[in-house]
Design a binder for these strands. Sequence first.
DNA 1: GAATGGCACTCCCGCGCAGTGAGTGCTAAC
DNA 2: GTTAGCACTCACTGCGCGGGAGTGCCATTC
Lengths: 337, 337
Amino acid sequence: MLDERKLAVLRAIVEDYVRTHEPVGSKALVDRHSLGVSPATIRNDMAVLEDEGFIAQPHTSAGRIPTDKGYRLFVDRLSQVKPLSPAERRAIESFLAGAVDLDDVMTRSVRLLAQLTRQVALVQYPSLSTSSVRHVELVPLTGHRLLMVLIADTGRVEQRVVEIPAPFEEEALARLRTQLNEAVAGRRFTAVAEGIADLAERFAPHERPSVGVVLATLLETVVERHEERIVLGGTANLARYLDGFAGLQPVLEALEEQMVLLRLLGQTGADAVTVTIGHENPVAGMSATSVVSAGYGPSRGTVARLGVVGPTHMDYPSTMASVRAVARYLGHLLRNE
Amino acid sequence: MLDERKLAVLRAIVEDYVRTHEPVGSKALVDRHSLGVSPATIRNDMAVLEDEGFIAQPHTSAGRIPTDKGYRLFVDRLSQVKPLSPAERRAIESFLAGAVDLDDVMTRSVRLLAQLTRQVALVQYPSLSTSSVRHVELVPLTGHRLLMVLIADTGRVEQRVVEIPAPFEEEALARLRTQLNEAVAGRRFTAVAEGIADLAERFAPHERPSVGVVLATLLETVVERHEERIVLGGTANLARYLDGFAGLQPVLEALEEQMVLLRLLGQTGADAVTVTIGHENPVAGMSATSVVSAGYGPSRGTVARLGVVGPTHMDYPSTMASVRAVARYLGHLLRNE
DNA sequence: GAATGGCACTCCCGCGCAGTGAGTGCTAAC
DNA sequence: GTTAGCACTCACTGCGCGGGAGTGCCATTC
């Protein structure tokens, strides 16, 4: 049904359209690519490709543009991830090397990704739910207030102010700190609950209410607070490609919603580069945009995702290469932190 | 030179133009506002106002639009800050009430401000340089690594990983922690240096290198790290008013630069609402936007600023009211934290 | 039977053109 | 100082008209 040449034609159409953003016709195609056949032949092939839904005409007597289905085929079977240039690799390394803390790493990564792909970049903070506790610290603020600082093995730090019904003795606080760390350090966040289940019992009755509040807050932080932070950058690139500008507002709106961003990046823990094209996208108002994302993490497992959002007519091979590269470097970096 | 009526005409022009975004003519003016004179008279007044540079014509035979100078006069002398509706006040209170930590407060504030003004909102984190140290915590991670957590009286928390040449004994670390807090707790950030000047001497020679690194990092954090975080929200609102869309990209770019945002908000510590109109703006590419900002802080002094960025043809009275209100509530909130 | 050359057809796009209407500036009268 | 009248300007709209890129179809070639 789709022989070699028809696939070559589709590939050529995608490549040309990505470059020019204009419908591509049969004549232009044979001129630019050495397909070895005449325009008329290409026209026949194009008719078939259109019947199958891979390309479409904006109007009669215009060239063809790829459909979402066409891009899908292109990404899955017709393209190869384009290797990065040495300059780009160096740029990635040097850009990420100077980071001083996790916040800094995240900020630099988004910038880098946005710059490399010239698109909108998203980077999700290392997820709390798949990481482990490294340390819990309790700091008295005023009598009835404690600051709880929770440090994850990914370098992520969560802080929370705790209002306690009765102030702790200095000694009691030290005891709680020690026991708390013994109970949860090294545990997966999902397993924190079991660790601290019987902790309150070891404290004197008058201390228990306050201990209870601390434990409850800790649980909240590791369990309920599943909402993951996502940083984004390069929004200025939106203005470049959404030429029509009509579709801009919904996209900007979507990018402001953390929940939406999460759905865009996808929850799947797959390490590989994932491409979501146009309508495949779960978010309304973003049917003209594609998302290229990948998981990253300190070890083989994925702890979070990153990616870029761009027009469906993006340069998939290059974009996929950049996303994959940044994800890998970021993984390395976390391993050494 | 500018009598009462001419000022009234200018006010009417600004109000109409803000509402319709279209050049306003003499006829339309007398129709909508009861000025008590004929269009011809208004035309004479308009000619004077144009000579003085308060209004301009996009082209001959079109209505007038206010110039930056016109808006300036309007803001300074012709408008009154419009009081908020009770519903808006309630919205502010309930919106900010549920915040759990400083990050949350900041995020909610931007959203709130963006929603109230329907523009792009900026909120600067409470500045480190004008606040004081509440507590410094040191947490061992691995042998050669410490996590330093610095808590400011504004609730802001900075963390930093410190690489130390030689691991600390548990006892030594506790000693350092205690002495460090005695030396700096309650001090202004700007005065931390004096507090820790002779601290290293109190430690055994073999501990000094590590102590030195910790102190150096602390200094870096409070002094060098002047870069202030700014959160922004409501960028989708840009798409609404920058109809021409030509000016959109530079604005989006500017909003991505922290340094630029700082300059936009202004460094001045004034509590009052400040308005910067069009070309008065120090940032190139944003000459079609105005900034309405205000300082906020837990006490009479200002610790940080917040504001909104919008088109020069914005509703200044309402915007100024919203900005002022959010700044005040935020101040209250910090006081109670 | 696939590939090709030729040809009529479609339809977007840019251009020039007149008509419309909102708005202005000027002048003379009140 | 204010007003009515009037000629003038100029953006905006709709219309008609090639030009041109591209297509689909058909007859022909290999």
